[in-house]
Design a protein around this nucleic acid. Structure first.
Lengths: 216, 216
DNA sequence: ATTTATTTTTAGACAAGTCTAAATTTTTTA
DNA sequence: TAAAAAATTTAGACTTGTCTAAAAATAAAT
């Protein structure tokens, strides 16, 4: 199998390649809190194992095999997050670090049984889709609240920022997954938005509106 | 915290020190499938961290701190084994390897919540006691069936050999935790024993009788 | 009580993964 | 399009944990 470091690189490359097809050395270094020189060393090893396509100075993409491994790790991460929240009653801002460790437990049988135990959840506590055992998942169309006009709305279904502070803020404002929201006003000056959230009214900054995702 | 290797050494030393107060380099090497030279290196590191008492050529004992860490790891191992068997329906001979990985998940809060989720089990699927969060557990008096005389008996409550092949054999013979057994005959020639196990009669070798433990 | 055998430690080496500093390539900008 | 800036790679070093081979210490045996 692959080492812990290799798994973390593949996962980071996968996530980064969602926004940029070609992932750069510096992007990876930033994501993994390491130095560009270290990344270059590892990229060579991953290329030798044919898990990434790598040309010096040109950035990387995952091979089919590399992508599959990355998706298995993400599957494990998200299933464990679901377990921690739904079975052990952790809050959604508390589970990331633990899942970072748990995603490296190797047994496939274990994760399939965990999936069954929880009745095959489709999304983790932050709304991110959980790939099935073959790495497939359907990405529903998420858009940031910031992209809405007045009187438009939808169901809160995901976040772009997964930091604990952002999640805690949302929790406090009751802006959690599943809530129905409608934009009632957009302030010209700073593009902040006033939302109708079920019974109540909330005022959010553009920063927040950009990081909170809905499905229409 | 401690590295994975350090944790495995502490755990191995703990287990070995149950039979020998002073644990030798070679015993540790055998337990961890490594070489004596590697063990010596690690013993120096653990001694520097004051997790073991180590005098060259004299073997080692755990310090109070080292023992506490070892017991936390064993607590985690056994709770995860219980989870795998009771919640995910694995068989008792399938869980050891998975728990070997899971025992290194660091969060104490996680393991305490897992403990609560399962309603504070006292024993793992093999009958071994699960230490509480402070490392305490009461060891009930287990004795091998081999030590019994005719007409004596008890409740199967543990195993000395944790290998999958032994556990599978016991499963097939219905010699599982909780079963009440009585010795009906001991064969002089090979010290094998005939047992009454609930409704049925089973013949076991001395080898098996030495590795199957009961409480009277 | 020496010699022999066993156990343990030391010395030196290696792989994985990381780092800093310097060199090289690519990109940007004037 | 040449010079400056930014990004990337190379070179060499360090740590952790492991190994083999040789040396040293302890235990066993004649």
């Amino acid at each position: 199998m692959n080492t812990l470091a290799e798994e973390n690189y593949l996962k980071a490359i996968y996530h980064l390649s969602l926004s940029d097809a070609n992932v750069s050395t510096n992007q990876i270094a930033a994501a993994l809190n390491t130095k560009a020189a270290s990344v270059t060393d590892m990229l060579k090893k991953l290329a030798d194992k044919e898990l990434i396509n790598y040309e010096k100075y040109q950035g990387v993409t995952l091979t089919a095999v590399g992508k599959k491994i990355a998706l298995q790790i993400i599957r494990k991460h998200r299933l464990w997050e679901y377990f921690l929240v739904e079975k052990l009653n952790f809050k959604w801002d508390e589970v990331h670090e633990m899942a970072e460790e748990m995603e490296h437990i190797s047994s496939v049988e274990l994760i399939d049984r965990l999936d069954k135990f929880m009745d095959y959840p489709k999304h983790d506590p932050h709304g991110d889709p959980i790939p099935d055992r073959d790495g497939n998942f359907k990405k529903h169309e998420l858009k940031p609240i910031a992209s809405l006009a007045v009187n438009e709305g939808g169901i809160i279904s995901g976040v772009r920022d997964h930091s604990a502070t952002f999640l805690q803020y949302l929790e406090k404002q009751q802006l959690t997954i599943g809530k129905k929201i409608t934009v009632t006003e957009i302030i010209d000056y700073d593009h902040s938005m006033i939302l109708q959230v079920e019974q109540t009214t909330t005022h959010i900054s553009r920063e927040v509106a950009k990081n909170l995702l809905i499905v229409i």
